[in-house]
Amino acid sequence: MTRETQLSEYLRARRELVRPADVGLPEGGVRRVAGLRREEVALLAGISADYYLRLEQGRDRNPSAQVLESIARVLLLDEPATRHLLDLAAPAPRRRRRVRREVVPDGTLRLLERVGIPGYIEGRYFDVLAVNRLAQALSPTLRVGRNRLRDLFLDPAEQAMHPDWPEVAPKIVARFREAVGTDRDERAEQLVGELSLASERFRTLWARHDVNLGRPHVTHMLHPQVGELELDMEKLSIAGTDRQMVVLLHAAPDSPSGERLALLASLAASEGPAASAGPAGVPDDDGVARAGTTSGTSGE
């Protein structure tokens, strides 16, 4: 998909989400389009209707930042969404992103086991690259080689463990769009295509073109052994990697969730070392399952 096509889709999707009343226009009369008309966007942005039409049709490759910022104001885009709009209009890089294997730094792997709470490493495309014993005990799908986005939208068992997933889903999709950015490679296109075909919910959310709706800081889970858990979620960027994140889940020790998490840790310890995560996961002596020979993706 070209930058021009992405820009066209983004403008159209965001225009359809703005109601006339949101920008001070009357709602009356028969409207044959969702949201604003192209002519209304052009008028409010101070540009010609023909020029805006060319932008939405992908026929103008060099819109100025001033024009784009005026359109962003009309479309009620926040700062991250405006930045995404400007990125879409920027010249495309001459070299396409290459798909490369993601490698988690050794120090991060050691940290993952020593933190003493459930944790895993999430790659650029939300692949699970490494996971500690407590995280494996927390969720059966937290396994190396699994993809968090795919599991949350396609696995009914995963959805059942997260009763708030319908509210969290828009934020996850928006964060994924931000993570893959505008330079889509084969891996991103394949994952989006698969989920769009298999999940109507994902397809609808992806078509909105939301970017960065905020990150979920609390996750609710229904664990089959210890019951309801309300856990704080921390996502920490790993320096020197292509958007890899350490994801940590924790609760106050004296809270009900903290006590249940401690019980889960005790149960996991009594069961002995974690089982292998399959051919893509190699559990080491430190109790962390990590990516073996499976190829992930990383940009140059």
Rank of each mutant, 00 (worst) to 15 (best):
R59Q: 08
E40S: 05
E39K: 06
E56M: 12
R94K: 10
L55V: 01
G278K: 07
L195A: 11
A89W: 00
L195Q: 07
R215D: 13
G119K: 02
D22P: 03
K171C: 11
L25S: 03
A252E: 15
T2A: 09
S64L: 07
A262Y: 13
A291H: 00
A252S: 15
R143N: 09
L85H: 02
K171R: 15
G107I: 07
W206I: 05
G272L: 10
A169W: 04
D127E: 14
T293M: 06
V247Q: 06
R175F: 07
A42C: 06
Q225P: 01
N132H: 11
A45V: 06
Q57W: 05
D185S: 12
E113F: 01
R215A: 12
A137F: 07
L53E: 08
D210G: 05
L195I: 12
Y120V: 02
P163D: 14
P283E: 09
G119Q: 05
I117L: 11
V131Q: 01
H223E: 14
G272F: 09
P140S: 15
S64R: 03
R110W: 04
H162K: 12
L195C: 09
A92G: 06
D106I: 06
G145N: 13
D210A: 14
F126P: 00
G24A: 11
R100F: 01
P105S: 13
L7T: 04
D106M: 05
V33R: 04
G29R: 10
V67K: 00
R94I: 02
L149S: 03
S139G: 13
D232S: 13
L85V: 03
S237N: 12
E122M: 14
D87R: 08
E178Q: 15
Q57S: 05
G29Q: 10
D50V: 12
R15M: 06
S270N: 13
R150W: 12
R177N: 10
P166V: 10
P216I: 08
P224G: 09
L236Y: 11
H220W: 11
L109R: 05
G299A: 14
L36E: 03
V246E: 01
M161E: 04
G193N: 11
W165V: 13
L17C: 09
Y51N: 09
T219P: 02
H209E: 08
A45Q: 03
Q6S: 09
A251Y: 07
Y120T: 02
P253R: 12
R15C: 06
A157E: 15
A21T: 12
R143K: 15
R94L: 08
S266I: 09
A45I: 05
W165C: 04
A130C: 08
L85F: 04
G227R: 14
D151G: 08
L261V: 07
H223L: 14
Y125G: 00
N62W: 00
L264T: 11
E230R: 15
L154C: 11
N132S: 11
S64M: 07
G272R: 08
G296P: 01
S139R: 08
A251V: 07
P91H: 02
P63K: 03
V99C: 07
L129Y: 05
G227I: 15
L205H: 04
A262K: 14
A160P: 05
G296F: 00
D242R: 08
K171Q: 15
R243W: 04
E102K: 00
L7H: 02
D106A: 15
V144D: 05
R19T: 10
